[in-house]
């Protein structure tokens, strides 16, 4: 089974997204939570980097954290799926292990 990678810091603050993208294998799932939700927003300086990986990895964003920062599903890069906490739990259960990029 594939691996779930969790990123929780803004790409404009930390380098954890790059570390995650570099180390994650194709078929992996990547979930943006907390301040990392900005990485899922379209038309930013990093959205092309995410779009280039969309065909090989599954991208998710925690909707409550996205909404708490003033964004909605309409702001997302196409192909990134919004999940609630129940969906977060499912991602953890459905992948064989979990890596938090802290």
């Amino acid at each position: 089974m594939a691996m779930l990678h969790i990123v929780n810091k803004s790409v404009f603050e930390r380098g954890t997204l790059d570390s995650c993208l570099k180390s994650s294998l194709s078929g992996s799932s990547i979930l943006f939570i907390e301040d990392a939700v900005v990485s899922a927003v379209n038309n930013t300086a990093v959205s092309d980097k995410i779009k280039a990986e969309l065909s090989s990895k599954n991208f998710y964003v925690l909707t409550p954290d996205l909404n708490a920062r003033g964004f909605t599903d309409a702001d997302l890069i196409e192909g990134i799926k919004g999940v609630d906490y129940a969906g977060f739990v499912d991602l953890v259960a459905d992948n064989s292990n979990v890596q938090s990029w802290l």
Partner: peptide, 19 residues
């Protein structure tokens, strides 16, 4: 930090799903 809040919400959702 949000860590304790995120963990609490996750734990609550996991328990609600029967984990």
């Amino acid at each position: 930090h949000q860590a304790a809040d995120s963990a609490y919400q996750f734990a609550k959702a996991a328990l609600e799903k029967g984990h």
